[in-house]
């Protein structure tokens, strides 16, 4: 297992390098620079700024310089938020985004797995159709539609919950978490149903039944572990998405997390901040996918022992 982890981490390095290189040059292709404003700055000031941030040097030199810096863990200063480094800004937004992601994940897992399992036990009945139709809606409905819709209905018409902020008023964390979690709950629900249906049709479930095991124990002890394999494989991308994909929800609900900084950085052409966050998210995705694979392997005895089934 340690060899497997090491192998995967080594494989991640070229992926990260490609991400860094592609985003470095793409950001520079965008017209304008961090200092272009509606009212142009005096030429000497611009020149001074560009020299200070070494933007006047050839692009390749800057690229190599940048690689050297991040190799030492230095993401550089933000161009827009003067006096703050990229690392500081990520550090400030991270806890908020993590908290939001954790709540959303919790909702997604609870709602998704339970509805999926229930649907799989009674296929092609209303207990199956209702959650699966909801899941279909959840998958089709983007969060920038669902968010405002929830704000309108629950926040403004019914006045049950606050519609923006994070930790200012009690209950203001509910709507953003639900908005974020719903799509993932929908995916997980469908995956859980599919996985369970697959496992429940296996011969060893019939064996369990023939042993006199009760239906509830068949689900809990015999089927759940195998049936959750697709859900676990999805957890990697899901976690990365929950943590890195919160731009929309954070913007809708005015939450001071990473996502909102990311969006603003893009508007501001804040080169170092965009790059820093992109790399950060890339690392997150790699790490979470690896974690998901490790958990999946651990849950599956066949993979755990590292032996493949001989043909």
């Amino acid at each position: 297992m340690p060899a497997f982890i090491l192998k995967r981490l080594l494989q991640a390095l070229p992926v990260l390098l490609i991400v860094i290189t592609a985003s470095f040059f793409m950001v520079r292709l965008a017209p304008g620079d961090p200092f272009s404003q509606e009212r142009a700055l005096p030429v000497e000031v611009m020149k001074g700024l560009r020299t200070y941030y070494k933007l006047d040097q050839p692009l390749v030199t800057q690229y190599i310089e940048y690689l050297k810096n991040i190799a030492q863990g230095d993401f550089g200063p933000s161009f827009k938020y003067s006096g703050r480094t990229v690392t500081e800004i990520i550090g400030a937004g991270l806890p908020v985004t993590f908290e939001l992601g954790a709540y959303a994940l919790l909702i997604a897992l609870l709602v998704g797995i339970s509805s999926g399992v229930i649907a799989s036990l009674r296929p092609n009945t209303w207990q199956d159709y209702v959650p699966m139709s909801l899941a279909m809606i959840g998958i089709c409905l983007p969060s920038y539609v669902l968010g405002p819709l929830l704000v309108l209905i629950v926040g403004i018409w019914l006045e049950w919950l606050p519609v923006s902020g994070w930790g200012y008023i009690p209950g203001d964390k509910i709507l953003p978490s639900v908005t974020m979690g719903f799509v993932y709950a929908a995916y997980i629900s469908r995956l859980a149903r599919g996985g369970m249906l697959e496992i429940l049709s296996q011969d060893f479930i019939r064996t369990a039944r023939a042993k006199g095991v009760s239906e509830s124990m068949i689900v809990l002890r015999h089927a759940l572990r195998g049936g959750m394999q697709p859900v676990i494989s999805f957890m990697g991308p899901a976690l990365a998405g929950l943590l890195g994909g919160s731009f929309v929800v954070e913007t809708i609900f005015q939450i001071p997390g990473l996502g909102r900084y990311y969006v603003q950085a893009a508007f501001n052409r804040d080169y170092t901040l965009i790059l820093g966050m992109t790399i950060f998210f890339a690392v997150l995705i790699v790490v979470f996918n690896l974690l998901a694979d490790i958990v999946a392997a651990w849950m599956n005895p066949r993979l755990r022992s590292g032996k493949s089934a001989g043909g």
Partner: peptide, 25 residues
Amino acid sequence: LRTYRGNRIAIIFQDPMTSLNPFMT
């Protein structure tokens, strides 16, 4: 019926490769 299955009436299936739960010892 469940109290009879695997207790007073046991059954062995055709394919031993798929009849045991791969996730349990």
